[in-house]
């Protein structure tokens, strides 16, 4: 079997990519994509910990990751709705140009 560290490294790598996208990209959609990457990295983590854990018959980790998938969908829906409402008002989704509120 593939050792658990491989999965953990993959998850950490994905998470870092997502975090980088979320922090560095200036486009709201790209930030949203970064967040989705981070959530999926966590899913890999949870499933790996569950599969390699001591009691596999306790499905806690799997349950958690299913809920995380549902949350990710809800978050994407609400996020896109908010992005659309900003786009209708401002004709831009570039975060640097959202500067009505500052100080």
């Amino acid at each position: 079997m593939v050792p658990i560290t491989w999965y953990l490294i993959l998850a950490a790598f994905l998470f870092s990519c997502g975090l980088y996208a979320a922090l560095a990209r200036r486009n709201a959609i790209a930030v949203l994509i970064g967040v989705e990457l981070m959530l999926n990295a966590v899913n890999i983590n949870l499933i790996a910990f569950w599969r390699y854990g001591e009691n596999v018959e306790n499905l806690a980790g799997q349950m958690f990751s299913i809920f995380v998938i549902a949350i990710a969908a809800a978050e994407a829906a609400v996020g896109l709705a908010l992005i659309i409402s900003v786009y209708r008002n401002r004709k831009t989704v570039n975060l640097d140009e959202l500067d009505v509120l500052q100080g």
Partner: peptide, 17 residues
Amino acid sequence: SEAGLKYFLYGSVASSV
């Protein structure tokens, strides 16, 4: 709408971490 979007972006990143 800008307030909502900013809240969302910070919030979703923070809760993923």
